[in-house]
Design a binder for these strands. Structure first.
Length: 680
RNA sequence: GCCGAGGUAGCUCAGCUGGUUAGAGCGCAGGAUUCAUAAUCCUGAGGUCGGCAGUUCAAGCCUGCCUCUCGGUACCA
């Protein structure tokens, strides 16, 4: 394996339209921080890069909705995010932002070099343009009627009612959300990165040269490469972002996914300038090892697009590895910002003061390394109480208290070693190697577990040697035992440093020592005999049931309040009574229900309408099981023109009430009425 | 539908290129112990390794089909 002189560690830039939650931490920032801290502890030259991703359409939309500027939005969240990372002890060497001057220049230069060298292709296409606002419209800025479900509030990229992905051209009666006017089609020119041309290179580089990448990452890349790559637009018609540095490109900016990864470079430059370093040594030198920590949603950008950009540019090294993690769920449900189902870091830090390491520990232990994982508050409590308090905290406390009791906190001397001492010492050396191997292969859960096993080893050693009994008969022997326990404690301060830096610091305080390097791990002479320890104090506190229940309740409450506080959709325009009476709505009863094959949300229903028994296809499978539907009273629009859906003729439509969270509910009569009764 | 990743003890997960009685932590049961935040240490119970076929002397690991979860993509009132 190659010996690198420098390490460039990046973590995905959080998007600055909201705070950071535990899913981000477990997936990206905790593993990246553990890795960076480990490398530094071994004396390596490391730069650990973070920063906010502040461009893109969603931020401009959020700004519009809140009546502020995009800069206001990113200023707000950049500040929150940066502060919360600091408080959690994420050890970025630099945490900057893509709205910085340095970044604008770096990204702009990067684009310009590729442009000048003819590495892009230019294409002209027709896009919707708002004449009044004088600008092209991003997909999200266009609303219209969904061609599938007739929802009048569908966006240009997706209908949120039926979940269909759309393109703006699909919308019936499109309207600009800027002015409310009907947009016009207008030609616009954009630059594309011809990924198809890089395909042969990417195939070799990933599929042949990097078989060691994680299975989920490698597989996803293979899937993309096998499907064939297409040119990808790297510019957008938008006024928020890095302007395209080409004459005549007014009103165009770099696509956020083009500029964001360049942010890693920009931020390195910023750091280098402030610290008298040469940034190129970390990005343009084969002796540097580049590692991107990301979540699985980012795989294609970091494994395909960004490397293609770097390769096109020509001066840059490519990532050595891209350890992408899967997702973290919360209490069995997907974490969701829009549904407010999340544990926010900045709130955690306030609600659990001084417990940064508890969160770091639990998230590292539960990291979704190979598959999606679940975070539960109950597990959080159990890991704190049964592992941090009972195993790690307890061993160190036992050692500290015994040393105080027997030796007035002075380290006793090491005497002759017995077999059990030697076995324990040998065990520690083995742990060192195992932990190193785990960390270097991005197996952080395993590494943490091994670290915790060192504390277990200490507890077992105490139980086996029983110094509290021996003190009555063999004082000299007890000195040796306690010396070993204290040395072991010093070792724990080293091994936990990457995972739990605050705790490592506390252990050092307890021992009255400075930070020891990683290489000292496994040694038994870290503290000299006679060295004075600090007064014993506890490293961790138990977390009581009440605190956990409060968090679970908070989650439920915020979810409910999110639903409650969602305003009703605006009323539609007036219709005449005659218009209304055209609709023939009846009460009916579901006789049979079955899933429509090969669909996610469709059920085929046989409904007794009182008039006849007919088949209706309905998109409710995500909320109702076929079994529970038999006999269900429903309201049905019987004179809707039949339509074939998935090869089944659907005769009518079942009326559903849709809640703010998207869940559906039948609309049925309050009292028992006959099938076929009119609803009017 | 297609592609990718998963489905291993109650829970969270390990199991390398197939090879003796499938592992760990937590939880549970029993025991030991009291220096320690009733913490610790030992022992034990618990698994037809998603299902069905197949290849092989031998399969959790290989092949085929099926099924469920997650992600991507396509389609879909």
């Amino acid at each position: 394996m190659k010996n690198f002189k420098r390490y460039t560690v990046t973590s995905a830039l959080p998007y600055a339209n909201g705070p950071v939650h535990i899913g981000h931490l477990a997936g990206v920032y905790i593993p990246a921080d553990i890795y960076a801290r480990y490398l530094r502890l071994r004396g390596n030259d490391v730069v650990f890069i973070g920063g906010s991703d502040e461009h893109g359409v969603p931020i401009t939309i959020k700004a519009r909705n809140e009546g502020v500027t995009p800069q206001d939005v990113v200023d707000k969240y950049h500040t929150i995010i940066k502060k919360s990372f600091e408080d959690l002890g994420i050890s970025f060497d630099v945490y900057s932002r893509t709205s910085s001057k340095t970044h604008h220049k770096t990204a702009s230069d990067f684009f310009r070099k590729l442009y000048d060298e003819g590495k892009f292709i230019e294409k002209t296409s027709e896009q919707y343009f708002d004449a009044e606002a004088g600008q092209f419209l991003a997909d999200r800025y266009i609303k219209g009627t969904c061609p599938h479900c007739a929802n009048e509030e569908a966006y240009g990229d997706q209908c949120e009612k039926c979940g269909t992905s759309l393109s703006p051209m699909d919308l019936i009666n499109p309207k600009s959300t800027l002015s409310g006017n009907q947009p016009v089609l207008k030609e616009t020119r954009h630059w594309y990165l011809p990924l198809d041309k890089h395909e042969p290179f990417l195939k070799k580089w990933i599929l042949e040269d990097h078989k060691e990448w994680k299975a989920n990452v490698y597989g996803q890349c293979k899937s993309w490469l096998d499907a064939g790559l297409q040119p990808r637009a790297v510019s957008r018609d938008l006024d928020w972002g890095v302007p395209v540095p080409v004459d005549g490109a007014e009103g165009k900016v770099l696509y956020v996914w083009f500029d964001a990864p360049i942010g890693y470079i920009s931020n390195t430059i910023e750091w280098a300038e402030q610290n008298g370093k040469d940034w190129k040594k970390y990005w343009q030198d084969e002796d540097a090892k580049l590692v991107h920590f990301i979540g699985k949603d980012n795989i294609v950008f970091h494994c395909i697009i960004f490397p293609a950009m770097l390769k096109s540019h020509g001066n840059y090294i490519l990532p050595e590895n891209v350890p992408g993690n899967e997702f973290l769920n919360l209490e069995g449900d997907k974490i969701s910002t829009s549904r407010n189902w999340a544990v926010w870091l900045h709130e955690y830090l306030v609600e659990f003061p001084g417990k940064q390491d508890v969160l770091r520990y639990v998230l590292a232990a539960n990291m979704p390394e190979t598959k999606d994982n679940d975070f539960t508050w109950k597990d959080f409590q159990a890991r704190n109480n049964n592992e941090l308090v009972a195993i790690l905290g307890n061993f160190i406390n036992r050692t500290a208290v015994l040393t105080q009791k027997y030796y007035d906190r002075k380290v006793p001397s090491l005497g002759e070693l017995q077999p059990i001492d030697q076995e324990t010492i040998a065990e520690m050396a083995q742990h060192k190697e195992r932990i190193e191997s785990s960390l270097e292969n991005y197996r952080f859960r395993e590494a943490l577990k091994e670290a915790m096993n060192l504390a277990r080893l200490g507890n077992k050693y105490l139980a086996d040697t029983e110094p509290w009994k021996l003190i009555k008969t063999d004082e000299a022997r007890v000195e040796t035992i306690m010396n070993i326990c204290i040395q072991l404690t010093a070792n724990l301060s080293i091994v936990f440093e990457p995972f739990m830096p605050f705790t490592a610091q506390k252990i050092r305080q307890l021992l009255h020592i400075e930070s020891l390097g990683w290489e000292k791990l496994g040694q038994m002479n870290l503290l000299a005999a006679g060295h004075l320890l600090d007064e014993p104090f506890l490293l961790f506190d138990k977390i009581e049931d009440e605190a956990i229940e409060a968090q679970v309740q908070k989650l439920e409450a915020t979810r409910q309040s999110k639903i409650d506080s969602t305003p009703a959709v605006e009323a539609k325009e007036l219709v005449s009574y005659d218009d209304f009476t055209k609709l023939d709505i009846r009460t009916g009863t579901i006789l049979e229900a079955e899933k429509v094959a090969k669909t996610k949300k469709l059920l085929k229903l046989l409904v007794d309408t009182g008039i006849d028994k007919r088949t209706v296809v309905s998109g409710i499978a995500e909320y109702y099981n076929p079994e529970e539907l038999k006999g269900k009273k429903v309201s049905i629009l019987v004179n809707l023109a039949p339509r074939s859906i998935k090869g089944i003729e659907s005769q009518g439509m079942i009326l559903m009430a849709e809640n703010a969270d998207g869940s559906l509910s039948f609309v049925s009569s309050e009292k028992e009425v006959n099938n076929g009764s009119e609803i009017k």
